[in-house]
Design a protein around this nucleic acid. Sequence first.
DNA 1: CCACAACCTGACCAATCGGTCAAGAAAAAT
DNA 2: ATTTTTCTTGACCGATTGGTCAGGTTGTGG
Lengths: 214, 214
Amino acid sequence: MNVETKPPRQKEGRKAREARILLAAEKVFAEAGFGGATMQLIADMADLPKASLHYYFPTKESLYRQVVEKIFHIWLRAADVFDSASGPAEGIAAYIDAKMELSRAYPAGSKVWASEVLHGAPVIQDYLETTLADWTEGRMKVIQAWIDEGRMTPVNPRHLLYMLWATTQHYADFSHQIETLNGGTPLSEADWAEAKRSVKQIILTGIGLEPPQP
Amino acid sequence: MNVETKPPRQKEGRKAREARILLAAEKVFAEAGFGGATMQLIADMADLPKASLHYYFPTKESLYRQVVEKIFHIWLRAADVFDSASGPAEGIAAYIDAKMELSRAYPAGSKVWASEVLHGAPVIQDYLETTLADWTEGRMKVIQAWIDEGRMTPVNPRHLLYMLWATTQHYADFSHQIETLNGGTPLSEADWAEAKRSVKQIILTGIGLEPPQP
DNA sequence: CCACAACCTGACCAATCGGTCAAGAAAAAT
DNA sequence: ATTTTTCTTGACCGATTGGTCAGGTTGTGG
């Protein structure tokens, strides 16, 4: 009778199952896009009957939304390294490393996000206007402060941020093209290291900073 | 009877109509993706009955393929400025300008291309392996030659190219996000000029070259 | 043991999709 | 003028889709 009591049940099993569905959905949405993905495909990849999907996620759109939101929050959290830095060189280098690692670890999620924005952000428009806009403004001020203190070359902070986003996400979003140009094989550990080094070298040098020595 | 005779007919009308369909399809595919686009939507935007679409383009996929191929060739042609340059500074600056102008002039086409690659290039995989691979290898050699001649800082030519692609296409592919962060309004003429200037400044400085003075 | 709630799913449905086709209209060729 | 070819489209079709639901199973508290 007590409404406060939380019956543990197999809550564990539930969360795990939801996570498995979200993971399968992330892959399918990344490969086929929202319109091309089908609940049946996601169900097959999660090894569940289709009706079970609708038990945990009432509609295709609600499932999609949760996939996108999950990625968005991973993205935001990675951006924390920007703040905990002591200066522009360390901050931007750490941000590049973090975002490159995300591109490597969550290629499907990155593609879902890119696809969503590409098609006009019909589902997460509110996030762009609130959370992302706030975050962007904050980092622009940090960069501008660094410039004002003479710690880096004066550049437009907004376009510097765009360049950081574009370049790092490119390795996830266009991974298929990159792999094809790499002879059809995925990037090796050394390839990724070289990619990160190259990106940091050009961008940091580009804003008057010393790239970290390997 | 003569097979050689080319009846002019309203050939003009036919090509024009095909072009109108391709333009409508480009927009719809860009907004909804291949899976989300419907022949009915494209027909409505082209102001034609759906059955007429199937007269000019037998299947949805053939229409999509032509849209993608059209963009690809525009992209390749823009890359010519790379060759006609006398040196790295002019060549790369001209390439950045050209690709930024393409992002501005053909945002829908760029999005279709990005969406195609994003989802594993199911339709234009052969182009990636042949034409694009050849083009990339050629430009890498040009850049390497500039480096060997001491005309620019040694950087990995492959990752420099990726950065050029990523940054310039970002302004088309993520235009919705950029507009949202721009207060919900499209970039002005001045905004585009500032974007091009910023990109050239950071990248050219990043590889040891002098950015062009405005 | 029972009752109740949460969980699960095979079978089903209305809606929508890409694509077809017959029948005609318009234009060219004869 | 008449045949032939090209063009046009309303009506239609099988297949697939997202979503529903009744009925069953499982687990839990009393």
